[in-house]
């Protein structure tokens, strides 16, 4: 059966690249002794897939990896065992069963990602940027230069910015241990494990800018692109040499769009979308 695991990647772990993180996650799984499914053949590997690779330097509260296990495990037990084997900076938040099938793969579902941006000390935009940013966001057309591996093209990113907020309200990052029902199960299952029952992350995420952006294979917009386009429009930096260290960026959440492909739902959904966090598509196993 397939489980979707949500974890946060913070602190020094932000310097660990995606491929290295993938290998390290396999080692975490091995250390737990959880019965993971391996592929057949001469070099069997774990059946796992990542929803949305994270770039080096970015932190995240919502890394999603789908892993196949040979037998069912209660969600809280998975979370507890994985946390027991994880290095500092990796915190397992949730683990739920998801359906097996091409259309349910995390990777194909990604439609939106939320980010919180914080200025790094000494890299702030000059006074008055907040007003300018509001004007910038209000435009119906924002042309941005998107550089691919081989191609350079100009696209309108305005419809791909679902939300942009200056000085957003702080919010708390919640894992399954913060879920009331799940926490109950957890306290029953704990005892032999110190430090696990109330193992909530208790992170309050706050920042200078909040961005909700289109993500995934259809139209992926990086937060840096939005901010560089803004900086270019207001002459805050030389577009040829954007400041790569302006922000510390955290990925808050990754969503699927349950409306996509469902014409009935699209009629009723606000803005034609119904975004659900990837973990929300899974079922808590108790």
């Amino acid at each position: 059966m397939r489980y979707r695991i949500r974890y946060s990647k913070q602190g020094l772990m932000k310097y660990i690249g995606h491929l290295d993180m993938m290998r390290s996650f396999q080692k975490i799984l091995r250390r737990t002794g959880i019965d993971v499914t391996f592929s057949e053949g001469y070099s069997p590997h774990m059946v796992m897939s990542y929803a949305f690779p994270l770039g080096v330097g970015m932190t995240s509260d919502s890394e999603y990896v789908d892993v196949d296990l040979n037998r069912p495990y209660p969600s809280v037990e998975l979370v507890r065992r994985l946390n027991g084997a994880s290095p500092e900076g990796i915190h397992i938040l949730d683990a739920r069963e998801v359906p097996v099938g091409k259309g349910s793969k995390g990777m194909t579902l990604v439609a939106r990602a939320d980010y919180t941006l914080n200025f790094r000390e000494g890299h702030e935009f000059p006074e008055g940027w907040k007003e300018n940013f509001s004007r910038f966001i209000a435009q119906t057309e924002i042309m941005a230069v998107k550089k691919g591996k081989k191609t350079v093209k100009e696209i309108n990113i305005a419809p791909l910015i679902y939300q942009a907020v200056v000085d957003p309200e702080p919010f708390t990052v919640k894992g399954i241990a913060d879920d009331a029902d799940a926490a109950e199960d957890d306290s029953a299952a704990s005892g032999s494990h110190e430090n696990e029952a109330g193992d909530s992350l208790d992170i309050v995420r706050s920042g200078d800018i909040f961005l909700a952006l289109s993500a995934g294979s259809a139209a992926n917009i990086r937060p840096e692109l939005v901010m560089e386009t803004f900086a270019k429009q207001y002459g805050y930096e030389d577009p040829e040499h954007p400041d790569p260290f302006r922000f510390r960026i955290n990925r808050d959440e990754v969503f699927a769009d349950t409306v996509a492909g469902d014409a009935e739902e699209a009629k009723t959904a606000a803005g034609g979308h119904n975004f659900v966090p990837l973990i929300g598509l899974g079922k808590i196993i108790s």
Binding site: G11, L12, M13, Y15, I16, G17, D20, K27, V56, P87, E88, G89
Partner: peptide
């Protein structure tokens, strides 16, 4: 490869 200099290995 900044990972070389962090000292946070398991």
């Amino acid at each position: 490869k900044p990972e070389r200099y962090l000292g946070n290995e398991l």
